[in-house]
Amino acid sequence: MNDQEVRRGAGIYSKPVLGFYDLLVVKFSNSLAWRCASQLMLDQYNRCIGLRHLDVGPGTGWYLAKANLPKSAEITLMDLNENTLEHAASRLAHSNVSTRGVTGNVLEPIPEALGQFESIAANYVFHCVPGSWEDKGAAFEYLGERLADDGVLFGSTILGRGVNHNLIGRGFMALYNRMGIFHNREDDAAGLEAELRRSFRQVSVDVVGTVAVFSAREPLRKGGAGGLG
C-alpha cells in the first residue's frame, strides 16, 4: 500500500476543514447523502465503549464528546493527522476522562506499548483507506491484536457497491473519490464481513442506507490463540 496515498488522504483534514466538518458530515451528509443518522452511530458508541478505549480516526471527536463515557475512562486517539488529534482531544478537555494522542497508520502494526483496549472504534475510517477490502483487511488484524479477548471493535463505513446512492450521495462519492478523500468505489458489505471474519470469531454487519455499521468480537490471535476463555 502506498504510504503517501494514505497520508495524503489524512492530510486533507486541516483546521479550517475540521471547523465545518460537523455541519457538513454529522448534521447534513449522514442523513441526506448516506441515509444513516448520526444518532445511530452515537448509540453504538454508548453500547460498546469501554473503560480503556482506542478511537481510530476520531475526526472532530463529536461522537466521543456526545457519548456516555464511563467515569474515569482512558481514551487513546489515533490518527495520522496532528490537527485531528488536537481537535478531538480539545472536545474532551473538560470531561471526566483522560486522553492521549498517538500518531499512527491503521494499516501498520499498532505499538504493543499502548496495551490492550476494552473497545476500539473505527468510525468512518475505512472508506478513506486506499485499496481493496483485502488491502484494508490488514487493519483488522492489527486492531485485533490490541483488543482485549472480551473487547469489541465497532464502527461504520460508507459503501460504494451493493447499495443505492441517491443523487446527493452519488455526487459526493464522485467528488471525494476524485479528490482522494474516499477510496470506496468497490467497497461492499460482503467484502467487509469477509475480512472481519479473518480476524474475529464473532462479526456483525448491518447496512443502513449506504453505510455498513459493524462490530466484531473474539479476536483471532496469530498462531491460533484468542477469543474468550
Rank of each mutant, 00 (worst) to 15 (best):
G224T: 15
D135F: 05
R170D: 03
Y13E: 13
M173T: 02
G155P: 02
P130H: 09
W62M: 02
M173S: 02
N83Y: 00
D150S: 06
C48E: 13
G57R: 04
L54W: 07
S215I: 11
G61I: 15
G227E: 03
V152S: 01
G61L: 10
P219M: 07
Q4M: 10
F154Y: 02
L77K: 04
E118Q: 15
V125A: 06
V211Q: 10
K71V: 03
G50N: 10
M41C: 14
G155D: 14
S72M: 14
D150F: 00
L69W: 03
W133N: 00
T60E: 05
D188Q: 12
F154T: 10
S215L: 08
R178G: 06
N83V: 01
W62Y: 06
R201C: 06
G131T: 13
A174R: 12
C36P: 13
A65F: 08
A10F: 07
A67C: 13
A121G: 09
H127Q: 13
Q202T: 13
R201V: 10
S204G: 14
L24N: 05
A113W: 04
V208R: 03
F126H: 00
N166G: 06
N30M: 04
G137T: 04
N46F: 00
F182Y: 09
V102L: 15
L175K: 13
S38K: 11
V213T: 11
G57W: 13
T103D: 06
D149P: 12
V17W: 01
E118D: 15
D149T: 14
M179T: 03
L147P: 05
E108P: 08
A122H: 10
D135T: 13
L40H: 08
A148M: 06
L24R: 09
F28S: 09
R47W: 05
D206W: 04
C36R: 00
G9I: 10
G101V: 07
N164Y: 02
V17T: 13
A194C: 09
